[in-house]
């Protein structure tokens, strides 16, 4: 089998695949943790309490308005500066590991984007749905959980898929803090061999990952939202098509 591969892949193919799996793991976990944090931030953003709202505004603005690489450096090297404190608190075992630092930075970052997606989706559910629920004597909490949330979840699907794609691309910066993700393994292979074509194979893997996800997500989303008209679906903002703060 290996004799049919280009020499660089015969030698480093396994490493690239390992890196590919690290990338998927890092992105998958970040998006999941980010969703949990993001729901909290979205709730704070829509809360009637001004200080919760202000905190959420600041959180979203800060993480969306500054480079992910700078955030990663602040968490990796900045928090590393106080390793003595983390040791006392028992957190150093977590923060010591570069993968965990990247996971923390990416989760906090994507949470800000996801919070805006969730908020946009909830606001895009027509007001009449609330009114209808109230007319039927359904309480606000139940109306939100049973009426609004399911519809908002559908509306959020498309921008949520886009956010996963953005996260896959953004995750490549993890290689800068010694995480051996796909780009990290690629840089390693390149620095061992100086064979530039390894970058093209890595680029192809990233493209395959992104395009596959995009297409599958598209089919998935279209199936679930068959009953919605186009205008409604587009009412929800996309992380790549909306100002950082609104």
């Amino acid at each position: 089998m290996t004799e049919y591969l280009p020499p660089i892949l015969a030698e480093y193919g396994d490493d690239l695949l390992d890196g590919f799996l690290v990338t998927i793991q890092l992105v998958g976990m970040s998006v999941a943790f980010g969703a949990i944090i993001g729901m909290g931030v979205a709730a704070a953003r829509m809360s009637p309490r001004w200080w919760l709202k202000a905190f959420a505004w600041f959180y979203i603005g800060l993480f969306r308005g500054t480079p992910l690489l700078a955030q990663l450096f602040l968490i990796y090297y900045g928090l590393g500066q106080f390793s003595g404190l983390w040791r006392t608190l028992g957190l150093w075992n977590f923060l010591r590991d570069p993968f965990n630092c990247a996971l923390l930075a990416f989760s906090l970052n994507t949470a800000a984007y996801q919070a805006e997606i969730f908020r946009g989706a909830i606001l895009a559910v027509p007001e009449g749905q609330w009114e209808g629920a109230r007319a039927l004597g359904v309480g606000r909490r139940v109306a939100f959980m049973r009426v609004i949330l399911p519809q908002a979840a559908l509306l959020a699907l498309r921008p949520f898929g886009n956010e996963i794609v953005l996260m896959i691309k953004g995750s490549a910066v993890a290689s800068v803090v010694t995480v051996y993700d796909l780009l990290g393994e690629t840089r390693l292979a390149y620095s061992d061999t100086f064979r530039f074509d390894v970058y093209f194979y890595a680029a192809a893997l990233y493209l395959v990952l992104v395009e596959t996800l995009r297409r599958l997500w598209d089919i998935f989303e279209r199936r679930l939202t068959r009953h919605l008209d186009r205008e409604r679906k587009e009412a929800v903002v996309d992380p790549a098509g909306q100002p950082v703060m609104s």
């Binding site: 603005g61 800060l62 308005g65 500054t66 480079p67 700078a70 955030q71 450096f73 602040l74 090297y77 900045g78 928090l79 590393g80 500066q81 106080f82 100002p243 950082v244 703060m245």
Partner: peptide, 20 residues
């Protein structure tokens, strides 16, 4: 590192706010 990366992030944040 903590101080300087915080400063950098604040500067980026300010440019973003001004741009907006």
């Amino acid at each position: 590192p903590f101080f300087f990366f915080t400063v950098a992030i604040v500067i980026y944040f300010i440019i973003s706010l001004v741009s907006m």
